[in-house]
Design a protein around this nucleic acid. Sequence first.
DNA 1: AAATTTTACTAAAACGCTTTTGTTCAGTTT
DNA 2: AAACTGAACAAAAGCGTTTTAGTAAAATTT
Lengths: 360, 360
Amino acid sequence: MTEKKSKSPSKVRMSRRPVSLKELAKHLGLAPATVSLVINRSRVADTIPQETKNRVFAAAQKFKYRPNFFARSLRAQRSFTIGVIVPEVSDGYSASVMSGIEDYLLQEGYFYFVASHRHRPDLIDEYPRLFLERSVDGLIAVDTPWTLSLSVPVVTVSGHNQVEGVTNVVLDHEQAAEIALTHLFQLGHRQIAYIKGQEFSSDTEIRWANIESVALKLGVPVIPALTAQLQGDSPSPQPGYLATRKLLATHKRFTALFAFNDISAMGAIRALREAGLMVPGDVSVVGFDDIQSAAYQSPALTTVRQPLRKMGRIAAETLLRRIRRSTPDSHGGETMVVPELIIRDTTASPNGARSSKKDS
Amino acid sequence: MTEKKSKSPSKVRMSRRPVSLKELAKHLGLAPATVSLVINRSRVADTIPQETKNRVFAAAQKFKYRPNFFARSLRAQRSFTIGVIVPEVSDGYSASVMSGIEDYLLQEGYFYFVASHRHRPDLIDEYPRLFLERSVDGLIAVDTPWTLSLSVPVVTVSGHNQVEGVTNVVLDHEQAAEIALTHLFQLGHRQIAYIKGQEFSSDTEIRWANIESVALKLGVPVIPALTAQLQGDSPSPQPGYLATRKLLATHKRFTALFAFNDISAMGAIRALREAGLMVPGDVSVVGFDDIQSAAYQSPALTTVRQPLRKMGRIAAETLLRRIRRSTPDSHGGETMVVPELIIRDTTASPNGARSSKKDS
DNA sequence: AAATTTTACTAAAACGCTTTTGTTCAGTTT
DNA sequence: AAACTGAACAAAAGCGTTTTAGTAAAATTT
């Protein structure tokens, strides 16, 4: 029996009151101004002899001098902080994007606030305001309908509105629809059902438009009776389950189902199973996003991968770039990122080796 | 074909430069001090006639006066900001806890910074420092080994070290082990395999200690050969998959498997399946956490639910309480939260109706 | 009527930094 | 010798608040 009582040594780092610029200057026999100039490597300090600079740096090191953030921000009108607004931190989509955002931001010395609006319009309105009050240098809105033009740069991830001063980072939805539907088509599917996203999801509309146009192009136009929509904002597979039940209730036959995301695809698979249908034997299922657990469903989920982390990182890069070039650019525009079809085990030919277990 | 070009009206809210206290005061013909006192409802303003106060409030409203955050923080030495440090934002565990933290924090007018250390010891050391430089009023460390005693209150979620000035919010691991193992025991399982958590996970040690003691108490002591440990910090089910393969490779028979978390349980199930074993027919599996998708696995996962959101909320409540009572309390201590066994479809009697498909 | 108290404010000092504009002195040019 | 140049700093004005210590006038008490 492993008994390992970790009597942690409790490194007591009795944080002393931090030393201020003035104190440091006094100790050095210099004016605060001088020290500030040296430390910030200002052009003005160019004429100061290296010898003096070294003394300053040495003292700063010794006393662990760190400029007070508020004083600096107050004076310089910059906070090195940005605001990130998401529907909900704990849904995998937002979290993946945030992960990418964070990656770049922290590396560049920025910190970020997070706020989840949970689809409440009042919060979608209020949080940006609160962020501005906190003087963020910029904002990133993830999967959130955005119509505001603010005094600081804004970048959205999966925002599709054209708004002055906001840049959108988006997936190439045409290509996404193309690869997913072509895959199903080539397997031989002709009756394809669809689960649309919730109204509030910012990708719903554009994704659907592209699905419709690609389906038409392939000659298998979308049949209204074979489409259902996710309802409610539960982050669980429940909405997908319910949507699929609705689909099944019509008794219209379909051999494939294209879900709005992986989570709803999981719910869909459960509903299909409960109806006695095999996946992919009777119905093929394609998800969207490729979240972590998609590969570990059984059967493993075929899905359209969205490079969420990368999108987050691009958003952060774009934002900082815009913050740094001080010119108040009216920089709208859009950056596109490409999807990738990940073929796993939930798609197969409708006349595959497996036989239908039962006719519904 | 639905062509709905959303020509969003782009509400142009041309944010004017915000008005300062001084300007507001000048406009009112009062001193800045007076306005400040009124707005902050200071006791000193008690003797100011309501009439004047009303004028102040009206003007503040009219000019949308909002105190500058930096100036205020600089003066008051409080930032209404806290720092949250997690292993990785995009893993479900951290995200759920954060969701609970955020809930309470925003409602109380606090914002928070997030930083992911990804188990890198240098970052675990650096981020708290950076947070302090940003003058956070307190810190929450989620699933992160914590040994520092700082100048601000610290609360951990699933931290198990006794450190001066830090409060731990933890699950009752004894009860967790109890309900899970008792469940398996009562179903008739006697050969139980285990997947331990990674070394770096802060729950690993205590959970394991409790499992060992409860198993002993039940008379089915843990067999070293039937234990494996998660390796690597991938957030996917991969480590669980590999651990289970290792378990299977020993050719020791077991009828149940208790995984460290739901994610690893998913990997485990896949490995079992690949080995030709049925779940729960041949092997029952119990997960831990009850993440969103646990209920939608097939079969749905039996698991020990950890109220993560609640733990996050409690952590935030505790932290604010400690921040508010200004006395620099050396407030160590611990708050326990109870687990709940969620019985679904991955556990069954070892001599159940289903027959073993194949002997390994 | 003088002394005291209360009312209704204000002045001014922080908070800790950045940045522009000087200033002094030594050395260099005309 | 007078004028100029550059080096090496320093003074001071903010940035926008909060808060303590006053103060002048009005009201009240003695």
